[in-house]
């Protein structure tokens, strides 16, 4: 099984989210990034370093 995502399509998703710009709770999905350059960064938890 090849496990790297590189060269493959990014998985689709939908998540609850917090938008610090508006200060509001919202949702975010892979649809929001269609046609854009984007990055996704995972981190172990809030109150650690991001």
């Amino acid at each position: 099984m090849s496990t790297t995502l590189v060269t493959r399509q990014a998985p689709e998703f939908k998540l609850d989210a917090y938008d610090p710009v508006s200060g509001k709770y919202t949702t975010v999905s892979s649809e929001d990034y269609k046609g854009k350059w984007w990055t996704i960064c995972f981190y172990p938890g809030d109150f650690t370093f991001v």
């Binding site: 609850d16 989210a17 917090y18 975010v28 984007w38």
Partner: peptide, 30 residues
């Protein structure tokens, strides 16, 4: 380039994190 950061914490925790951690001051990414 859009930047999305994700952890397994709740959105409520995210809000608190941005509000209290000095290093997260003015953080402006989803």
């Amino acid at each position: 380039v859009e930047l999305l950061v994700v952890s397994c914490d709740s959105k409520f925790s995210h809000k608190r994190f941005v509000e209290t951690e000095p290093l997260m001051e003015d953080f402006a990414q989803m």
